[in-house]
Write a protein that binds this DNA or RNA. Structure first.
Lengths: 144, 144
DNA sequence: TTGATGTCGATGCGATTGCATCTATATTGA
DNA sequence: TCAATATAGATGCAATCGCATCGACATCAA
């Protein structure tokens, strides 16, 4: 049975939550200031770019991004309308489709990384001593 | 100048983000399954309960919760309509108001904690060895 | 086969968020 | 004092989210 959390657990949860929200806000603000789309667009573009030629099915992207199905459907809508992603026919499953990043999509991802990368460095990297980032990554991994 | 983040920093950021989102989703799902309002309501109620008799100004709550001003305004709206929070006149500043938790609000916070507490234990506590929670809290604090 | 059930993705609708801006009051400085 | 500026909080409107559900195809069991 699951009982009440101890104080250390509560502090960890509150800290995790605040840290992530502050970092996200900082990063999103920098993207917006540079007239770039939100983080979720970057994440989608990056997953699709990593997937390469064969692309990804929407449900795969959904799992990779931890998105709700309906939100992913609409995100893909917007990105397709923006010319960043191509919806291709899926040979194996006629219910589905295959998503591929376009040239424009690749270009936008690069422009976003030019802002996103330094933002991560500023918001996370500069605040952690060497080795602490690894610790944080390891602890986070245990929660997934 | 801020340059590119190193790999450890990127891993820390991605891990932090995924861990927080998964944990949040798990906790919110449990609240919803118990027919309870979302986490933000709990957070607001808890801040107001901690503040005690003298209550809090909306802008103080805004800072405590890391909310946008307009979102806080509307959250308070909904919670007031639900009878959980009282808007009181603010003697010092006639532009503003003082927010106080109601009896109903206190009661709801308790009922929420009965779900929220175990949820934290399950999603965070059970996945971290003793001491790791403290480490995570300490690392998170460096990011704030 | 074929009927029952499961999975993929889209969508109508109401709720919430983000942006810009507004009103009212407070503060500051000439 | 009083005009200029700043701060507290609300709100109209468009974009996005959450929920429920749908249509289309796939899979599985008899």
């Amino acid at each position: 049975m699951t009982c009440k959390p101890d104080d250390a657990t509560v502090s960890a949860w509150i800290g995790l939550s605040r840290a992530q929200r502050l970092a996200t806000a900082g990063i999103e603000a920098r993207l917006k200031a540079a007239d770039l789309p939100p983080l979720s667009w970057y994440d989608a573009l990056w997953e699709l770019e990593k997937a390469g030629e064969c692309g990804l099915r929407p449900f795969e992207l959904e799992k990779a991004l931890l998105f709700e199905q309906y939100n992913l459907s609409r995100l893909v809508d917007r990105m397709t309308r923006a010319g960043l992603v191509d919806r291709c026919v899926c040979p194996d499953d006629r219910r589905g489709q295959t998503l591929k990043i376009s040239g424009e999509g690749r270009a936008l991802r690069q422009r976003m990384w030019a802002v996103y990368g330094p933002a991560i460095a500023e918001v996370i990297g500069e605040r952690l001593a060497p080795g602490e980032a690894d610790q944080l990554a390891a602890l986070s991994a245990k929660l997934c």
